[in-house]
């Protein structure tokens, strides 16, 4: 068997493949966070909870309403996005002028309430969501069996990331949004409804999290705690990429997924902290993150 530094090549390739899958989740989630932070300046701690709610929306849809996976991919983000809009309208809106810490505390509280409520209704051990029949089975890559579903996760999240990036960086709507974050008053003076745009942006960021949740539902147990552990890593990803940088979020999401995968081959016990070690190093070396602008 071919080995690299004493580790079988097949193992490295397998872990890189899995790293890519995890990286896609990180990219999708950190993109939503980056959109919300970049355009609203809100540190959205409820992001993990919205991800969890997206998965639960898919689960409830399938179990009780007969909504299949493909519809859930559209409807669950929509439903959770609307919830996000309501939260923005009722609560978040009043905090924009205050220290960002208040937004963090509010969204953290929302996350706790959402998790507690779901735990009360569905219990802690979670529920199974079946892989849609079209995506069952796997490709045998020689060094591992890659489930078709995981390949789909990579493709779907990369596509959504690309579309989001395009919308914000290359379209007129995106240009207005970015202008509004630079100088809201001036943009409003041109007759653009800034509060509406901000509201929609938050809803869209939240919908991205819910979309990731639906993607994750067939992979992990749909449980109230599924977002808690993930959101911390995703925050680290955003910090490494540079707060608010969309490209940074996408690239560092994917790269950190790969790094984590490699760590699992070399020293598995460190796999849960490697992202934070990298974050610490990046913060010392480049406090604005890899893609951050000063």
């Amino acid at each position: 068997m071919t080995t690299v530094f004493g580790v079988p090549l097949a193992a490295i390739l397998g872990q890189l493949m899995l790293g890519l899958v995890n990286g896609s989740f990180y990219a999708l989630l950190s993109l939503g966070l980056a959109v919300i932070f970049g355009l609203l300046g809100v540190v959205n701690f409820a992001h993990g909870a919205f991800y969890m709610l997206g998965a639960f929306a898919a689960y409830v849809g399938l179990q009780f309403l007969g909504v299949n996976y493909w519809w859930a991919l559209i409807l669950a983000p929509l439903a959770v996005g609307i919830l996000g809009v309501i939260i923005e309208r009722l609560f978040l809106r009043h905090l924009y002028l205050l220290d960002p810490l208040y937004g963090l505390l509010l969204t953290f509280g929302i996350a706790l309430i959402a998790e507690g409520a779901m735990r009360g209704v569905f219990g802690a051990s979670g529920n199974s969501y079946p892989v849609p029949s079209l995506l069952q089975g796997g490709f045998n890559l020689g060094f591992m069996v890659l489930p078709i579903y995981r390949a789909w996760v990579v493709l779907a999240s990369l596509a959504v990331c690309a579309v989001t990036w395009f919308l914000i960086e290359k379209t007129r709507l995106g240009a207005r949004l970015r202008a509004a974050t630079e100088n809201a008053l001036l943009v409003q003076a041109f007759g653009i409804n800034v509060p509406l745009m901000v509201m929609i942006t938050y809803g869209a960021g939240v919908a991205l999290a819910a979309f990731a949740g639906v993607l994750a539902a067939p992979v992990v147990q749909v449980s109230p705690l599924m977002g808690t552990s993930l959101v911390i890593v995703v925050f680290a990803v955003v910090v490494i990429g540079g707060m608010g940088s969309l490209v940074g979020a996408i690239v560092s999401g994917l790269v950190l997924g790969l790094v984590e995968g490699l760590t699992k081959v070399v020293y598995p016990e460190a796999s849960s902290i490697v992202v934070f070690v990298i974050m610490a190093v990046v913060l010392i070396w480049r406090p604005t993150g890899l893609f951050g602008r000063d």
Binding site: P8, A11, G14, N22, M144, R150, S229
Partner: peptide
């Protein structure tokens, strides 16, 4: 509290 076991499983299989 690990949610993704896939890489550990690959090692087990190897």
């Amino acid at each position: 509290g690990t949610t993704d076991y896939s890489s550990f499983l690959l090692q087990a299989q190897a």
